[in-house]
């Protein structure tokens, strides 16, 4: 087995786990899992746009990574603006972003190449193909997410806990909501870069949900979510390499299955060790 070749996939799964630990518990506590799903699916629109621009205008620099990142940030910004400035129903807005972004992506891909393209790869990811460039991009996204979340941790915690009281205490709720939306978009783009769109939703919800069963504080949930996601990533890489090394999405699929299985197991065998 080529162990040296596993270094980058392991690094990529560690960075995805870091995003899961950093953002996931907040997503869960704010009951924003549907928002994470909408932002991650909207990335398909950016990926389609990148394919379209590359095909029609020769914009080779505008890769699917940049398209996905742009779409995720745009979706998060739209979400913040619409929910912050209007009385629109949040679930309807999320449905629009979710389905509209994904459908637009498919249409643009078909328009660009005459076929649907590698939708499967974008959905399931290709963790085993992670290389140095991918890891560097993911590291930058992880660093920016961390810089957005950690310095404002206390204010973000207060806003996530009770928006109304936070506003009455003088916290700029609109600003911190926007910061969180952007950090979520970066985390989604980071995870989806190698893990795929489905993995982004899974990693931003399931490790935090599992750790919430036995962790009573946000900090502990963040630490355990990271460990939980990282272990699932290692298990996914090992299983993917063993079962079907030729299937590029195998590691991601097993990663996803490991996260789901472990979350279900923890929920079922919940132990009370709060603190």
């Amino acid at each position: 087995m080529d162990y040296a070749g596993l270094l980058f996939p392991i690094a990529a799964s560690a960075l995805a786990a870091a995003a899961s630990g950093l953002i996931g518990p907040f997503v869960l506590a704010r009951r924003a899992t549907y928002a994470a799903g909408a932002v991650s699916h909207s990335m398909m629109g950016g990926i389609g746009l990148a394919a379209f621009c590359a095909s029609r205008f020769g914009w080779e620099w505008f890769t699917p990574f940049w398209g996905a990142l742009l779409a995720a940030l745009a979706a998060a910004a739209a979400l913040s603006l619409i929910t912050g400035k209007t009385n629109a129903r949040i679930d309807a807005v999320l449905s629009g972003i979710w389905t509209g972004g994904f459908a637009t992506g498919i249409v643009l891909m078909v328009a660009a190449t005459g076929e649907e393209g590698d939708v499967e790869e974008y959905l399931l990811g290709s963790l085993m193909e992670a290389d140095g460039t991918v890891v560097v991009k993911m590291s930058v996204l992880a660093a920016v997410s961390a810089m957005a979340i950690l310095p404002g941790y206390n204010k973000l915690l207060a806003v996530s806990f009770d928006k109304r009281l936070a506003a009455l205490r003088g916290v700029n709720v609109v600003f911190w909501d926007a910061v969180f939306s952007m950090a979520t978009a970066l985390a989604v783009a980071l995870i989806a870069h190698t893990g795929g769109i489905l993995m982004a939703i899974a990693l931003l919800t399931l490790p935090a949900a599992a750790s919430s069963q036995f962790c009573g504080s946000m900090r502990r949930q963040m630490a355990f979510s990271f460990l939980f996601a990282f272990c699932a990533g290692i298990a996914g890489i090992a299983a993917g390499k063993t079962v079907n090394p030729l299937f590029s999405s195998a590691a991601s699929v097993f990663f996803l299955l490991a996260v789901c299985a472990a979350a279900a197991f923890v929920s079922k065998t919940r132990r009370a060790c709060h603190g």
């Binding site: 204010k155 915690l157 009281l165 936070a166 504080s217 946000m218």
Partner: peptide, 13 residues
């Protein structure tokens, strides 16, 4: 997910 102390500290956010 926060401790009682963290909940009270939110008052000073």
């Amino acid at each position: 997910p926060m401790s009682v102390m963290e909940a009270v500290l939110a008052g000073r956010a």
